[in-house]
Design a protein around this nucleic acid. Structure first.
Lengths: 233, 233
DNA sequence: ACAAAAGTGTTGAGAGTACACCCATGC
DNA sequence: GCATGGGTGTACTCTCAACACTTTTGT
C-alpha cells in the first residue's frame, strides 16, 4: 500500500468488499458456452450470474479464482487469466463491491459438475443466447469474449478448450466457433504447426467416419503465447 | 457481487483495503521516466514508491486513478489505462491490501508540480536507473513498461507523451526512446501517417537548427487504437 | 557556401491468401 | 466401390524492410 499519513484513509466500514468472478468458457457440442449460476438470494434473485465469491484473507487473487473454478467445475489446472477489475460505485445495489474478473478455458470433457453443493443450479449458455445477467455481468462477459477472440487471433491457446489429445480438424473448428468465421484448412494447418506449440502423439483417432486423423497434443517445452505476427486469420 | 448464502463471507475486519496506484510515464530530456514519491511513514519509510492511495467509497476506480494523477501532476485529461490488479497476501506487511494499478502517459510540458501539498518529495526517475522501490512496486513498474512497449508497437498512442503539437522527428524519437531501438525515418513516417491518427496543423516549428519542420496534432475524429498489423518496427 | 535537420521513393524478400485434388478407412 | 472426412502444394499479392539523396533554413 502506497499511502502515508496524508489524505483519505478509510475506516473498516468504508472498505469495499472484494470478490473474484470467473468467466468460464468451454466448447459444448461445437458451440462456445459460458458457465452461469442461478442466484438464490436477493438482489437479482433467480437471475443468472457468472460464478464468483469473496476473496479470503489468506488467499491471493489467483488462488481465489482457481478455487472458484474448482468449486464450480471440479477442474484444477486450466488456462486462467486476469481479465479486468470492475469497481463502479453502484454495481452492487447493496454495498460497494469491487470485483477482479478472470476468464478460464476449460476442456468440456474434464468437467465434473458439483451438483447442489452450493448453488441451486449451474448451466452452460451459448454466447448467442445469454439470459439477462445480474449486476454488470453482461459487460464482463462481453469483455471476456472480446479478449478471448483477441487471444486466439494472436496466440495459440485454442487447444486449451479441447481434450488433452485432439485432431487438427477439431482444433480448427474450435477456432472457427470462437472467431465466428471460417478458416482455410491448409493455411490453418501450416500456421498452427509453424507456431510449434503442438505436436503429433503418434496415435490416431478412430472417431471420425472417414479417414482416421492424427492426434496432437501440447508440447510443454515451448509456450503458446508466441506473439509474432497475427496468427489468424 | 455474485455470492449467495453460502461459502465464505468476510466480516468487516476481514475485508482487504483497496488502493489504486498509478505508474506515470513522461518524456523528460528525451528519456522515458516515471514519477515516484518518497514515503515519509513506515513501512518502507524513506523509500520511493509509485503514487497511490485508497479508493474512496463514493468514487469509481477510474476516478480514483484520475484524482491521484491530478494530485501529483496537476494534469487532468491524459491517456490512462487500467494495467493489472495486484493482490498477493503479503504485498503490504501491515495488512491485506489489494491495488488496482493504472498507467498514464503525460506530456511533460503539461505538468505542474504540486510541491509539498501531501508528499515530502516527488521526482522523475529514468527507467534505466530506478531506485529500490517499496512493496511490489518494482514488479508493477516492470509490467507497466512492458505494456507501454506493447501498446506502442501495435497502436499509435505515442503522441500522448508529447505536447499538443509536435514534429514527426519528435514523435519518432519518442518511439525510439520507449522501444529502445532505432527506427527508419521513411518507414516510420509512412506508417504513422497511414494510421491516420495525426495530421498537419499547417504551422511549422522553428525550434530546430536546420530546416523548419511541419507541426502535427492528433485528429480527434479517429481513434488511435487501430490494431491492424503491427505498426512498429 | 556550408552546416543542420527535414523531407521524400523504389526495390527485393518474405508472409499471407486463395485455391483443388488425392488418400485412407468403414461399410 | 463408394461415401466420408483427412491430408497436402503452389502461384499470386501485398506488406515489410533496407537504403541515399535533395530541400529548406540560419549563420
Amino acid at each position: 500500500m502506497p499511502t502515508e499519513s496524508k489524505g483519505f484513509v478509510p475506516t473498516e466500514d468504508q472498505r469495499p468488499a472484494v470478490t473474484v468472478d470467473v468467466v468460464i468458457f468451454s466448447l459444448v457440442e461445437n458451440d462456445l458456452r459460458v458457465l452461469l449460476v442461478k442466484r438464490r438470494t436477493p438482489p437479482f434473485e433467480g437471475m443468472w450470474a457468472i460464478p464468483g465469491g469473496f476473496v479470503r484473507p489468506d488467499e491471493s487473487l489467483e488462488t481465489a479464482a482457481a478455487r472458484k473454478l474448482a468449486e464450480e467445475t471440479g477442474v484444477t489446472s486450466v488456462y486462467t487469466e486476469q481479465l479486468y477489475t470492475f469497481g463502479d460505485v453502484s454495481r452492487d445495489p447493496r454495498s460497494r463491491v469491487i470485483t477482479i474478473a478472470y476468464f478460464a478455458l476449460v476442456p468440456h470433457e474434464a468437467i465434473q459438475h458439483q451438483p447442489g453443493r452450493y448453488e441451486s443450479a449451474t448451466s452452460w449458455f451459448s454466447l448467442a443466447k445469454l439470459p439477462p445477467l445480474a449486476f454488470d455481468h453482461e459487460k464482463i462477459v462481453d469483455y471476456a469474449l472480446q479478449r478471448l477472440r483477441y487471444k486466439l487471433e494472436y496466440t495459440a491457446v485454442g487447444f486449451r478448450l479441447l481434450p488433452h489429445e485432439f485432431t487438427l480438424t477439431e482444433l480448427q473448428q474450435a477456432y472457427e466457433v470462437v472467431l465466428g468465421e471460417e478458416l482455410d484448412k491448409r493455411n490453418f494447418r501450416r500456421k498452427i504447426l509453424a507456431a510449434e506449440v503442438i505436436e503429433e502423439t503418434g496415435k490416431i483417432s478412430r472417431e471420425s467416419e472417414g479417414r482416421p486423423a492424427k492426434l496432437y497434443h501440447y508440447r510443454d517445452d515451448s509456450n503458446p503465447e508466441v506473439k509474432t505476427r497475427r496468427l489468424f486469420p
